[in-house]
Design a protein around this nucleic acid. Structure first.
Lengths: 143, 143
DNA sequence: TCAGATTACTTGTTAATTGCAAGTGAAAAT
DNA sequence: ATTTTCACTTGCAATTAACAAGTAATCTGA
């Protein structure tokens, strides 16, 4: 369901360029990874992730991802200070992209987390289905 | 074939982070796209690509991609001024990543090049095989 | 109840990266 | 011999990222 109007001027409408302009930085995909694979949902959790994103960059990226409909934000009903960030369906649809990136690294670069790679390699479709199923079951996603 | 030693300090060894640190900017994947899908092989061709990369950024990215073994550089035997840039096998292995990014954009954002998307959607494996076959036939790749 | 902690930020400030314009040297074409 | 092409480099301005500190709203524990 492509949008009828670009929200910013794009360098080109090439579908690869579009995704690069949305996701091509050093943090966006890591935030999405934390949501998809680690079920992170709060600002503090993202801040405490291993790669140590700066607070202003995190705030900026969360806004950008929400603006693009990749994540959604809701208030925590149990704690007025907290916001809950969740992946939208559009965000979940990035699972294959992340998966292929992980496989590429596994094949060509030094890396960690052999268990994740074992799982993906064993049955990619099953892995993707499981990730999506977990997301469906959370059911706190509101697109 | 992962390298035994990281060439720079990485924020983390998470396989997604590794690929993000190598490819997560606004130009690297576009250069790879031009090599993979459009058979671009020279500095001038990359410069003339629609998105208009700056000359210093292009030089910088070509060096980075070569350093990571994603592309290889050779002299043009017919013209002493020219260099020929080609994808290595490691670079070709990015085809699934690019393909999934294109599919994601096709599903969720306004974009162009419906013919490419039609091809990929029709038979993804066949598309990937064809891209690799074209690369093999060029046979000017030296890893 | 109220001091202290927690949460999700913002606001400086500095450092790094990007983008633009112009220039360079070697090789090729005219 | 001069001009053009090629793959860059250099200098500088503008944008972006990183770091440190602060803030308002909310919650928690004595």
């Amino acid at each position: 369901m492509p949008r009828s109007r670009p929200r910013t001027k794009l360098r080109s409408g090439c579908p690869l360029n579009v995704s690069v302009e949305i996701l091509g930085d050093r943090w966006s995909l890591l935030i999405i990874r934390d949501m998809m694979l680690r079920d992170f949902r709060s600002y503090t959790q993202f801040l405490e992730s291993y790669e140590r994103i700066a607070t202003n960059i995190l705030a900026n990226r969360l806004k950008k991802l929400e603006r693009y409909g990749i994540i959604a934000t809701q208030q925590d009903p149990l704690d007025g200070r907290k916001l809950i960030y969740t992946l939208t369906e559009k965000g979940m649809d990035l699972a294959p992209v992340l998966t292929e990136m992980v496989l590429w690294t596994a094949a060509h670069e030094e890396h960690q987390n052999p268990e994740l790679i074992r799982q993906i390699k064993k049955d990619k479709q099953k892995f993707l289905a499981a990730v999506r199923q977990r997301w469906l079951e959370k059911s706190s996603h509101i697109d």
